[in-house]
């Protein structure tokens, strides 16, 4: 079995999200991207994204990578998931 599909998917999906917020102030964009992924993504996808960041994946969108770095080590908190931009 290959992890390539999941890897490619999280990189692509993460970049799609990052592009949507790229027009924002940098810190705000990072916060939005981080919150959106925490709110909607399954933990294994987040883990794959975190692995990409840890291993220095060059394909990763810079805003996306920075958003992932803001996650605490144990980011799987059960707090309310709230996007700054709305939901």
């Amino acid at each position: 079995m290959s992890d390539a599909a999941l890897h490619d998917a999280v990189v692509r999906m993460g970049a799609d999200i990052a592009r949507q917020f790229a027009h924002r102030d940098h810190d705000q964009a990072v916060e939005e991207v981080s919150a959106h992924i925490l709110k909607f993504w399954d933990p294994r996808m987040r883990a794959e994204l975190r692995r990409c960041v840890t291993e220095g994946d060059d394909d990763l969108d810079p805003i996306l990578a920075e958003a992932v770095r803001t996650w605490p080590d144990e980011e799987d908190t059960q707090a309310d998931r709230h996007e700054p931009s709305g939901g």
Partner: peptide, 17 residues
């Protein structure tokens, strides 16, 4: 925590999880 969406089920299936 959120679960997998349909396309991510496919991705994760190919990844083996």
């Amino acid at each position: 925590e959120p679960g997998l969406r349909i396309p991510n089920m496919f991705d994760s299936a190919l990844g083996g999880s």
